[in-house]
Amino acid sequence: MMTAVLMILAVSCGKPGEDTAGKTGGESIAVFTKNQTNPFFQTVRLGAENAAKQMNATVIQYIPTVQDSITEQLSEIEDAIIKRPGAIVFIPVNSKALVPGIEKLNAANIPVVNITDRVLGGSVISFMGCDEVNMALNTGRFLLQKLNGRGNVIILEGVGGSENSANRVSGYRKALAEFPNVKLLASQPANFQRVQALGVTENLLQSYPQIDGILAANDSMALGAIEALDAARRKALVVGLNGTKEAIDAIKAGKLLATGDCDGFSHGCLGTMAAVRHLRNLPVPKEFIFSVMVIDNTNYAGLDVPYDQRMCPSWESVVRDK
């Protein structure tokens, strides 16, 4: 009986029968992101909208009004369960704390595609994200190679205790381990914020007369550090992470060395495509890790396009059957 009710609900939400696979449209996909402030999540949302449009589905965005609020994202899940979208594309604001939310969605039989940051429990159709440690490792290595393996560097950390920051900092530290002649002068938090990175860098420039490289755990902090260097008329190579438009412009202007990118736009695209494909009974990989790109002045050209003019790549060109 229960199954029958669920079947009816599922059908009313656009889940096709076997015979109509690949020919339907109008599925509704709820997309959960962490906040309205970080440009990365805006690119994820734009990617999701673009993919939905291409596949003739619709997207509803759920964004906490208080940034990265665990309680708010949990209540948004409860709201979504009442509205019953066909499927959910989900970025947890916290990998562990949102597990009960995923379990609620499992109990309500709403399929979940987990993107960007892995949620550590419950069951999901697919995880599509990037390896943040690896992203920082490649970007850090790129800077240290440019320093010819010598010199003094500092790390600007993100929010203390956050997984993103911990992973990125550990990636940078792994890169440093490969270059024994580079000295890590300081690793200090600036909470992913530009104004704090400006202050922290200004302070560190006071105590260290020679800083050759700055490894920032996101682009905003890298750009704040550059402002501090400019104001102090000092020079150092700076890298950030996230591949934001502003970072690419700074690379073009010769101020930023590089930014490591895992392409939030593609996360939004592929996550939404996976959700729609699942509803259309098309195959979806259990796990997909996006490749990391280190963007510098040799390869930014194709990425220098406003996100609202970008188009999602086709599913087949990115996801190869394993």
């Binding site: 203390g160 200090q188 202050g199 922290v200 560190l204 105590s207």
Partner: peptide, 19 residues
């Protein structure tokens, strides 16, 4: 407030202890 942060940066106190 500013001196506290400045001091912690100059002394490079770990982010874990700063708050």
């Amino acid at each position: 407030l500013t001196l506290v942060l400045n001091g912690m940066n100059l002394l490079t106190i770990s982010g874990n202890w700063q708050p």
